[in-house]
Amino acid sequence: MRQTLLSFTSILFFSILTGTSFAQTLNTAQKPITNVPTTTRTWQRDTVKNTDPSLNGQYKFMLSRTRTSADGYKMVAGYRLDQLWKSVGDTLKKERAERKSLQQKLTEQEKTVSYLKTEISGKDASLTENTNKVNEIRFLGIPFEKGTYNIIVWSVIGVLAIALIVVIARSGKSISEAKHRTQLYNEVADEYQAYKAKSVEKERKLARELQDERNKLDELNGRR
């Protein structure tokens, strides 16, 4: 759009300069002819209206409403040139206003983006802090990372499990040894009880035999 405006402006300046140069050339090159009646030509405004309000449409409409001089030059009505120049000026003002408005919007958007970046940075820092708090565990007032704490806890559990297995294994061995010794004790006790019973029975038998011998001895003494 800006290039189009510059093109139209250049064309208008060129048209004005060309018309001025042509007028000066005619004034200097042509000599006044005497005894020729001069006629004054007036440019009447036509009633045809332009249907295309764009600059290109106005320019083409202006060219279509030109007149050709006897020398083959195109003559443009001054009021149409003024209208086109006014349209160019209004368009430039509008473009400048829109550009200024866009610049202001861009500045506001940059401020908004900067503010949002600051907010995001603050939220990222807060999120990092909260994540660190979530991943941090305090034990006896000492801070530990969650992963480190889990490693320590599972290591302690593993050591305790190994110790428990060793204790159970040793206890099982001790229990087995105790059962074996208890069995040996029971066997010895049974043997002792059997031996004791045999001894008592043998003692009784010997006592009966001794009593029998005494009885026999008493009978022999009585016969004498």
Score class of each variant (00 low, 15 high):
Ile165Asn: 06
Val166His: 01
Val166Ile: 03
Val167Pro: 01
Val167Asp: 11
Val167Gly: 05
Ile168Leu: 08
Ala169His: 07
Arg170Asp: 14
Ser171Pro: 07
Ser171Gln: 13
Ser171Ile: 11
Ser171Thr: 12
Gly172Lys: 14
Lys173Glu: 15
Lys173Val: 08
Lys173Ser: 15
Ser174Arg: 14
Ile175Tyr: 04
Ile175Leu: 05
Ser176Thr: 09
Ser176Glu: 13
Ser176Asn: 15
Ser176His: 10
Glu177Leu: 06
Glu177Phe: 03
Glu177Met: 04
Glu177Arg: 09
Lys179Glu: 05
His180Asp: 11
His180Ile: 06
His180Leu: 12
His180Tyr: 12
Arg181Val: 00
Arg181Met: 00
Gln183Asp: 04
Gln183Trp: 02
Leu184Trp: 08
Leu184Ser: 07
Leu184Glu: 12
Leu184Asn: 09
Tyr185Trp: 08
Tyr185Lys: 09
Tyr185Ser: 11
Asn186Arg: 11
Asn186Lys: 13
Glu187Cys: 00
Glu187Thr: 05
Glu187Ala: 02
Glu187Ile: 01
Val188Pro: 03
Val188Met: 12
Val188Arg: 12
Ala189Ile: 05
Ala189Pro: 00
Asp190Arg: 11
Asp190Lys: 12
Asp190Trp: 05
Asp190Ile: 09
Glu191Ser: 14
Glu191Met: 14
Glu191Asn: 15
Glu191Trp: 10
Tyr192Trp: 10
Tyr192Pro: 03
Gln193Ala: 11
Gln193Gly: 06
Ala194Glu: 14
Ala194His: 10
Tyr195Ile: 14
Tyr195Val: 12
Lys196His: 04
Lys196Pro: 01
Ala197Arg: 08
Ala197Phe: 09
Lys198His: 04
Ser199Arg: 14
Ser199Ile: 11
Val200Gln: 05
Val200Pro: 02
Val200Arg: 03
Val200Phe: 05
Val200Gly: 00
Val200Thr: 05
Val200Leu: 07
Glu201Ile: 03
Glu201Asn: 01
Glu201Arg: 01
Glu201Val: 02
Glu201Met: 03
Lys202Asp: 15
Lys202Phe: 14
Glu203Thr: 08
Glu203Phe: 09
Glu203Ala: 09
Glu203Arg: 08
Arg204Asp: 03
Arg204Gln: 03
Arg204Lys: 05
Arg204His: 04
Arg204Ile: 05
Arg204Asn: 03
Arg204Leu: 04
Lys205Glu: 15
Leu206Met: 09
Leu206Tyr: 10
Leu206Trp: 09
Leu206Thr: 04
Leu206Phe: 07
Leu206Cys: 02
Leu206Pro: 01
Leu206Asp: 11
Ala207Ser: 00
Ala207Tyr: 02
Arg208His: 08
Arg208Val: 12
Arg208Gln: 10
Arg208Ala: 10
Glu209His: 01
Glu209Leu: 01
Glu209Trp: 02
Glu209Arg: 00
Glu209Tyr: 00
Leu210Asn: 13
Leu210Asp: 09
Gln211Leu: 13
Gln211Pro: 04
Asp212Trp: 06
Asp212Tyr: 04
